[in-house]
Design a protein around this nucleic acid. Structure first.
Lengths: 248, 248
DNA sequence: TCAAAAGTGTTGTAGCTACACCCATGG
DNA sequence: CCATGGGTGTAGCTACAACACTTTTGA
């Protein structure tokens, strides 16, 4: 059975063309069906989608999400939604909060628990996903029209991302395995919407001891080739247990 | 109508006898009835309580909470629960997160959205509350047996309280209108479970500009009387807009 | 006059910010 | 050889931690 009154929405952040982006979809009912087809009261939930006027226009986009089946943990189901839509597993995923205003969804009482994820868009080609037709990345500063209160949800998720990123080096999740320090800095600048001093940033990051010098360099760039680093997950996990003391 | 699958639980923190405490209840069905009596499917929800074996013993305590009525905002309903049980209005109240493991409540799928509140127990005499018989303060380090996953919820709320208190001066909510700096320091020490250097603490707090010297002093103390301060809410609200930069 | 808590300043240190020039590479 | 971004060190300042003694009050 599907819980009519509760849904999960994922705010999936990615870093594309040096901009912070969010992955959105237009959730047509045949897409929703792929989530729910084995559940017994799909039709009831389908109603919520197809008869809801705000969903009928082509202009409106939505966070990727779905109603919660009765026999699924919320955390696990958020992961499931993410892997179904992006193909990504083992993704950094965090609960934002639950949005529960009575009228957030017209004609129906639905609360939603929002999660946010941080992914690297280049790891997975969305055109190969079964959801491809209806998925799209949008720059955080150029969001389309959004259904319900999804704009508010994105804003809250962004707030959470910003406060998270200052104290935890989650930014690495958005980059390829091997990255340059300039890429990392740009990422932080984009997320925090500031500029950072290059020398100070490098000092701080390198003192954290989380970077592995791969010995490799960029190739085919029309300037001095930058060193490629990777992220030391083992050291990170150790530091996290000890309570890491880090601040961009 | 009451939403069977969703409840609200409040972790109410208070500062009593120099210890951090949590307000808990034993939610007998006649108490639950006061919340739900006007809703139409009370009996259905009552079942969840009375037939649940974990609830039948007298040893078990629970967070104050209830199922969510269909026509109530979650934030507003958390406030309502708080004012019903403690009589307090305008309380500092914050969402912790939503707990949604499939089996957190046996024999029934119930997710719960937890809130935490910070109050001053001396402001309100619980013996005058209509809930008095079943309410009790428990020291955070001496919790009784708790139903379901309520222990985990309290731990998560405490984590959130601790991280909040370091950057926002929410501690004032737990103290009387007029308080001494030593009381404030003790409060921080209890919440953070550390000791703080008196001189450094006073410097930091006084530099924040949030204290008003009332000109009054303690009376009838067997030692030098301490100055009484109050909290400057106006300055606090201004600072909060500018993004306050504060750290215990 | 004693016990008990209030109140107060300084010094060393660690970590932050601000800032400008040379280096490597491909075109 | 030039355009482009990569890469580096220092000096001043701020904010923090560590630390011990005097003051006030009631009993």
């Amino acid at each position: 059975m599907i819980l009519r009154h509760l849904s999960i929405d994922c705010v999936i952040f990615g870093f594309k063309d040096n901009k912070l982006c969010v992955l959105l979809w237009q959730s047509e009912s045949d897409v929703a069906k792929r989530f729910f087809s084995e559940k017994d009261n799909y039709e009831e939930v389908e109603d919520l989608f197809t008869k809801n006027p705000i969903h009928s226009g082509q202009d409106y986009w939505a966070l990727i999400g779905s109603h919660l089946p009765e026999d699924e943990d919320i955390d696990g189901y958020a992961k499931f939604i993410l892997s179904k839509t992006t193909g990504l597993e083992d993704v950094y995923l965090n609960q934002v909060k639950t949005f529960g205003k009575v009228n957030r969804v017209p004609f129906s009482r639905v609360l939603t628990t929002a999660y946010y994820a941080i992914i690297n868009p280049e790891y997975h080609d969305l055109r190969q996903s079964e959801m491809a037709k209806v998925l799209n990345w949008f720059r955080i500063d150029k969001l389309p029209k959004l259904v319900f209160d999804h704009k508010v949800i994105i804003e809250e998720a962004l707030k959470k991302l910003r406060s998270e990123v200052k104290y935890h080096p989650v930014g690495f999740q958005m980059l390829p395995d091997k990255f340059t320090l300039t890429e990392l800095q740009t990422l932080y600048e984009v997320i925090l919407d500031t500029t950072l001093d290059t020398r100070n940033f490098r000092k701080k990051i390198q003192n954290m001891g989380l970077l592995i010098d791969t010995g490799e360099k960029q190739t085919n760039v029309a300037h001095r080739a930058a060193k490629l680093y990777s992220f030391d997950l083992d050291v990170y996990n150790k530091l996290k247990e000890e309570g890491l003391n880090f601040r961009i």
